[in-house]
């Protein structure tokens, strides 16, 4: 089952200008998403997941952030493959919300407070599909029903402040799906929600993907969520992908010390309460994510890595094939 990817990012490098200096928030990044596939992008906060998403969408803060290298090949509804990294802003705008759509982390602040949710869902339908106000408003009600909102006709006339966080995130999903995109980018869509709502939203996304067959790039810092929803996973650290492969492979045999550390810090069901009762803190990875302004030479993870050798600090390790489509950016992947 090898389908042509809809998204094929290669050697992406995105820089930010911070106080006159250019720092790379993302580099050497390779990533593909096939139709109907969910790829998770996982890593601690600050590892460059959102910057990767915004680079693909062409929504980096202007004047500050910029894609300086690499290609973002995207195959939209027309089937034609185009490079989003070099596309002009008007062409990119006509793709955004249409062929590729995005759901953000904060449902409370991501909806415009002064327009009804129905209007906000209808807007991309009018813009991209050229439908009339009335027609788009009807579609919006249908979309609200599709994302599991009861009494959609009434809800469509309500304002965001009248809806709960979980409902707002459903509205965001309805808005993203309004034009039937081939790719959905979901940047931590469940992080701000409580656990039961989180599970409902994940179920919803899975169901919608089955019905519509879109690819999903799912950004999260939660490995538990990755196991729930993704087919493949890319683990990011300090702007680079350090390990990638099928979820089952990576979870069964992690080939990078960072992934192993992340997995150890996710408690198994019931384990968290047990550890807490015994007064043992959850295991965490010692140290913290390095600042982009002071990235260490060589492997960025080396200062926190229990397996680090002098060799690790000599140069950035390449992403090595470890079997199948499983890859690791660790020179000692065979031993660990």
């Amino acid at each position: 089952m090898k389908r042509r990817p809809i998204l094929d990012v290669s050697d992406l490098k995105t820089v930010f200008r911070i106080g006159g200096r250019q720092v790379a928030a993302v580099q050497d990044l390779n990533l593909t998403v096939a139709p109907g596939e969910t790829v998770a992008l996982v890593g601690e906060s600050g590892s460059g997941k959102s910057v990767t998403s915004l680079s693909i969408m062409g929504l980096l803060p202007r004047k500050v952030g910029k894609v300086v290298a690499g290609r973002i090949l995207f195959r939209g509804k027309s089937g034609e493959e185009r490079d989003l990294a070099t596309m002009d802003s008007e062409a990119l705008r006509s793709i955004r919300g249409n062929d590729v759509a995005m759901v953000f982390q904060e449902p409370m602040t991501s909806l415009n407070p002064v327009y009804t949710v129905g209007e906000q869902i209808a807007e991309p339908i009018r813009i991209h599909l050229g439908r009339s106000h009335k027609d788009a408003a009807e579609s919006a009600v249908g979309l609200l029903a599709a994302v599991g909102i009861p009494d959609p006709g009434r809800r469509a006339r309500q304002y965001p402040h009248e809806l709960s966080g979980g409902m707002r995130q459903r509205v965001m999903i309805a808005m993203a799906l309004a034009c039937d995109p081939v790719l959905l980018i979901a940047d931590e869509p469940t992080t701000a929600l409580d656990v039961t709502i989180q599970a409902q939203i994940l179920d919803l996304l899975r169901k919608l993907q089955e019905e519509r067959g879109m690819g999903i790039l799912f950004v999260t810092h939660n490995l538990g969520v990755v196991a729930e929803i993704a087919h493949r996973v890319a683990v990011m650290y300090a702007g680079r992908v350090v390990e990638t492969g099928a979820v089952t492979d990576v979870f069964r045999h992690p080939r990078h010390p960072y992934t192993m550390g992340l997995m150890r810090s996710v408690p198994k069901l019931g384990e968290a309460t047990m550890l807490k009762r015994q007064g043992i803190p959850l295991p965490t990875i010692a140290g913290s994510v390095p600042s982009l302004l002071a990235l260490p030479d060589g492997c960025s993870f080396a200062p926190r890595c229990p397996y680090a050798l002098d060799q690790c600090r000599a140069g950035v390790p390449a992403l090595a094939e470890t079997g199948g489509r499983h890859k690791s950016r660790c020179i000692r992947w065979e031993e660990i």
Binding site: I95, R96, G97, A101, F104, N112, E123, I127
Partner: peptide, 11 residues
């Protein structure tokens, strides 16, 4: 955030 959302919709 909602201004970013509007841009993400292709407005």
């Amino acid at each position: 955030d909602y201004v970013r959302t509007a841009r993400a919709k292709g407005v």
